[in-house]
Design a binder for these strands. Sequence first.
RNA 1: AGGCCCGUAGCUCAGUUGGUUAGAGCGCUUCCUUGACACGGAAGAGGUCGAUGGUUCGAGUCCAUUCGGGCCUACCA
Length: 1000
Amino acid sequence: MPHELPKAYDPGAIEEKWAQYWVEQKLFHLETPASAADVFTLLLPPPNVTGRLHMGHMLNQTEMDIIIRWHRMRGHKTLWVPGTDHAGIATQMMVERRLESEGKKRAEMGREAFVERVWEWRRHYGGAILGQMKRLGASVDWQREYFTMDDNLSRAVREAFVRLHEAGKIYRGAYIVNWCPRCVTAISDLEVVHEEVQGKLYEVHYPLAMASSSRAQADASQSAGSLGPSTASQGAGSPAPNATPSQGAGLPAPNATPSQGAGLPAPNAAPFKFEGALAPGTFITVATTRPETILGDVAIAVNPNDERYKSWIGKTVLVPLMGREVPIIADDWAKPEFGTGAVKVTPAHDPNDFAIGQRHDLPQLNIMDEHARLNENAVAYQGLDRYVARKRVLADLESQGLLGQVKDHLINVGKCDRCKTVVEPRLSTQWFLQVQGEIAQRAIDAVEQGHIRITPENYKTIYLNWMRGIYDWCISRQLWWGHRIPAWHCAACKEVNVAREAPAKCRKCGNADLAQDTDVLDTWFSSALLPFTCFGWPEKTKDLEVFYPTSLLITGFDILFFWVARMIMMGTWFMGGESSAGVSPAVAAGVPPAAPTPALSAPIDLSNAVPFKEVYIHALVRDKERQKMSKTKGNVLDPIEITERYGTDAVRFTLASMAAPGTDIAFNEERTEGYRAFANKIWNAARFIFMNVERARQAGVLELINSQLTIQDLAKDGRLEDVWIYSRLNSTALQINAALNEFRFDEAATRVYDFFWKDFCDWYLEAIKLRLEFEDQKPVNREAAASALFFMIYVFDNTLRLLAPFMPFIAEELWNALHKGSPFFKPISLSMFPTGDFKDIDLEIEEEMRVLQNLVADIRNLRVYLGAPPKQPLEIEIWVLDEWEQVIRNNESIIEKLANVQSINYIYEAEQLGPNTRQRPEFQVRVVYEKQIDVAAERERLTKELKKLETELANAQRNLANESFLTKAPASVVEGIRKREAELKVLIEKSRAALSELPA
RNA sequence: AGGCCCGUAGCUCAGUUGGUUAGAGCGCUUCCUUGACACGGAAGAGGUCGAUGGUUCGAGUCCAUUCGGGCCUACCA
């Protein structure tokens, strides 16, 4: 059992070894059990395959690992599934950058070669983050590692897509979507980050057309047909824009008739020049923040109730710089109080305008290409970048006298989450998942009905609010890296064939000329399916049966909507029985959502459909100034680097001890330093223990403790310190289990820390040193030495196990040092976690120990106060309450040892103690040491103490004199105050006496 | 615009359903290299709990208002 340990704790020397050992021994692998009983499953939020571990990961993984190790040690069949995410945009961007450095371009390579290149990259460098996880000791089941682009997972994604399509939940159509001109793809609402910037609000004058007001809608809509291609899906390789959004009947297909009409100037002509004069009443003024979109205007809208403009409705105006004649229409969207009350309508470039356009049958004039450069529809401005065009448009407006007031205006610009390019609302044909209605409703029900518990609870509201206002999800991306949409377009009849595998011919016309849709799915689409696809869905596997629903999800707030919400939607959909009537597609982006309709079918039992039973949302790791860590700020901490300096255990412990639910973590290395010191403390306590075990062995004491006695037997009539530490151990274990049950990682960590350092090291080990004194290799008292050894080892062993989830490396190292070689040895990760037992908590003993601790502290205080040499044993005099005398007498040796006391004299008249005492309700003590003390300082101290006591007494007495306090407060509180009152009286009396005895 | 969170010792944070004396770590002051540990030990100093008002026998804790800091959501041109 005993081992020689190096003098100082060196994490680097032990951690790598155990990290490797755990993986090699497959310690965390779980064979599929026969039943779901006692199974605990956790899914790792898959990091990007391109990712590097950051502090957020480390916090996330530390928490998961603590929970997982805790469950495993409690005997549950514990499974933690790791994997990586293919991360469409991020990975594609990264490989593109590499290609660039080789002078190659994606477009030149072609799709197939490019995708092959990405795979090659992933084979060589992908998943480095998992290697980092291994080093940090994450106890995942490496035998079950997945990648979201694996064959089986890809098959599952296709299956899910097809089934959703068959259920009428997936539709395709031309809508305004968020478009990143740099990534050249559509992105979802969630991938847009909003930023308030100072912009301008420009007023622009639109001259009334010369034609009379009798020219109305008919003409306007006629000209609509002449506006040229409207909904051009010019995204990289998008399919021909032939589909129509399946809105209600009666709407004209917005993207029909791409004919180039007459009456439009030839491309690259000079902008239309307005020659007339702007007399009052001959023009209407609108306000805009994006003047370049004027080029795509197809109407002006005013509020029907706006008196100023009532007579204008139905007239037409000329679009500046274009000369196009467009109608003035009445629409509620125009708010009289904003700007001039008149709003320009650009259906192809703004979600609201798109909606207006649909209400009024307006054409959709797209003036930009996929890079947000102006296209041929912008005529004179063709080829210009949107911001260049903006400047040019403004200059031209100004020169023609059409630019009115320009005001500062705060605008909320949407930027691409990935590359921070300003998003351009773009009309394009995309695939949507209809989550509004049934799918969202199930996800709402699952949480509302309590099948999923969310901690901290306020995230439940956030989740529900979001889910209730959800828009349909744009799931197509114009990328090459990802799951390609399983739809094939027929060259002949344009039919879209959605199928699991490539069909041989068009199901409608039989033509064999089919081309697969070029879009891929949003990466989150596949992630949303993971809780069941990673267990083999759509096959009815044993894994799926026993591991689904997973038990818990631990993740950060940032992906609550991206991932958590979508897993709940997909889980409750697919695992709750997908059955659904085909509901007509609802609204896409930019159109106000309808309230989710209740499920059509009978209520579904969602209890086992949910992807997880419980969600714990953790906080953000910030730097020590509470700033968000970001590469641009340069305040990013590399967890691996910090780990190398302080040890993984110390970093883990830092994160755990700061992880109070709901509070962001301001990571401070000074804390980590402190926890490395804690590890060092544990290390040295182990050295002390091993040293004594070795001595005991040599003295022949060790065999005494191998008896049949249990710890409970020994504790029953053991010495005070033994029973005390055993009691403390039990309450600590209970508290830690309770804390972990509520994700109170901070609480749990603090409890181990305090118990180990303060109770076990500072008091228990110090107290038993006098029982572990060996003279000439012979213990002074064999029985006392044996029981001390027994308790010491027992408590240390248990503490290591309590510590193991938090600091697995040092725990494993010392555990092995303690036990390896014993017949029933197993790694600490597979040992049993102490649960604690209420009946082994002895509050009376804890109270006795508290009094002894107070006495020792008071003596030490007096010693320092009197300036006594630390090493000189001194005599003390003590007055003690009768009922406490025996306790003190029984433990004199401890007092002598811990306070360096030579002898204890009992005084039965407190007055005889004289000055320079310390008093507690149970005792008053004096240290016999003659030295002039600082009378003034002592008087100040006593006065201060007295005042404090008197204030407290006054408060207590006021309460006790208060009738309503006595009647309304709980009896225990009243009794507590009564007791305290009595104590205070004694203390005050003694303090006064001490004060009066001070020399003048 | 709506919603949420935070404000407690010099610093970073605990304080669970309102209940006796508001805690910890780091930092600071003084002392101690005693055979586990100076990544240590001992003793100490330091807070009218952002402000105001209210509910209550009793408020750091509940309510309102307010100031300061942060976050999320949102289609106002």
